[in-house]
C-alpha cells in the first residue's frame, strides 16, 4: 500500500533523511525505531508533506503523491498523529474526534462514540475541553481521533509518551484489534520497545537519517548488537 523509495528530506539546507526505502503492505503494521534525533518524526512528516522539504518517491496505492498537500493525503487515508498531539483546546473531547470525520472523504469510519468506548479512559471526559485534559489524556485522544477518519494507513509518532503502564497495555491491545478489524496499516515510531513489539510484525531501525536494519522481530532479537549499536540499550 505504501512504497517509499529513495526519500531525502531537508530542513533548510540541512539534509535530515538520506535515501530512505520503506514499504508497508495493505493492513501491515511496521515499527520504526531509533535514537532521539534519528529522523523518525521527520520521516512521518515527510510522508504527509507536512514540514520538511522532500525529494524522492512516495507511492500510496501505487499512486505517486509528489507535491500533494497534506489535507489531500489525509483524505486518501493517511492519518498522522504528531508527537506533540495537537489537541484542539477549545473543542470538547467528542468534538475533537468528530471533527476528524471530515477527513474520511466518504470512507466508512468508526463513530466517535465507538472510539470513546474503545479508549475507555476517554469515556468520562467526553464533555471536557481539550485544553483541560492532562498530558496523557490528550495523548490518548490524539490516537483515538486518528481513527475517526477511517484511515487506511495510520502514522503514529510515539503514541505511548506520557501514558501510564496500564493504559499503554490497553492501547496496544486496542490498536492491534482495531487495525485488524478495519484493515488499517500502521507505521509506528516508538521508543517503547515492548509496545512496538506488541503492535507490529516487523521493524526498521533508523540512525542519523538512514535505514540501517529492516526485518522481523526475531531477527532483531538474534542480533543483540543491533540493539546495542542503534538503540544503545
Amino acid at each position: 500500500m505504501l512504497e517509499v523509495a529513495h526519500l531525502d528530506a531537508f530542513y533548510g539546507d540541512g539534509q535530515i533523511l538520506h535515501a530512505i526505502a520503506l514499504d508497508a503492505a495493505e493492513g501491515e503494521r511496521v515499527a520504526v525505531l531509533g535514537r532521539n534525533g534519528a529522523g523518525k518524526s521527520t520521516l512521518l512528516k515527510s510522508l504527509m508533506n507536512a514540514g520538511p522539504r522532500v525529494a524522492g518517491a512516495i507511492r500510496f496505492d501505487g499512486r505517486l503523491l509528489a507535491e500533494m498537500p497534506s489535507y489531500r493525503r489525509a483524505q486518501l487515508g493517511l492519518a498522522l498523529v504528531p508527537e506533540d498531539r495537537r489537541i484542539y483546546s477549545h473543542l470538547t473531547v467528542l468534538e475533537n474526534i468528530a471533527i476528524a470525520r471530515y477527513g474520511a472523504a466518504g470512507r466508512k469510519a468508526m463513530e466517535p462514540r465507538q472510539i470513546l468506548e474503545r479508549f475507555s479512559m476517554l469515556k468520562p471526559l467526553e464533555e471536557r475541553y481539550g485544553g483541560q485534559l492532562s498530558g496523557g489524556q490528550q495523548q490518548l485522544l490524539a490516537v483515538g481521533r486518528a481513527f475517526a477518519a477511517g484511515p487506511r494507513l495510520l502514522l503514529l509518532d510515539e503514541p505511548t509518551e506520557g501514558l501510564a503502564p496500564v493504559i499503554v497495555e490497553q492501547m496496544a491491545r486496542e490498536i492491534a484489534a482495531i487495525c485488524d478489524e478495519e484493515k488499517v496499516g500502521l507505521v509506528l515510531c516508538e521508543q517503547n520497545i515492548w509496545f512496538a513489539r506488541a503492535c507490529t510484525s516487523r521493524l526498521y531501525l533508523i540512525d542519523t537519517g538512514r535505514i540501517v536494519f529492516s526485518g522481523g522481530w526475531d531477527e532483531f532479537d538474534r542480533n543483540a548488537d543491533l540493539k546495542q549499536r542503534y538503540l544503545a540499550v
Binding site: 531509533g34 535514537r35 532521539n36 508527537e83 510515539e158 509518551e161 506520557g162 521508543q191 538503540l231 544503545a232
Partner: peptide, 11 residues
C-alpha cells in the same frame, strides 16, 4: 514533571 518522556531508552 515526566523528565524522561519521549526519550530513547539509552537517554
Amino acid at each position: 514533571d515526566e523528565p524522561t518522556a519521549g526519550m530513547s531508552p539509552s537517554d
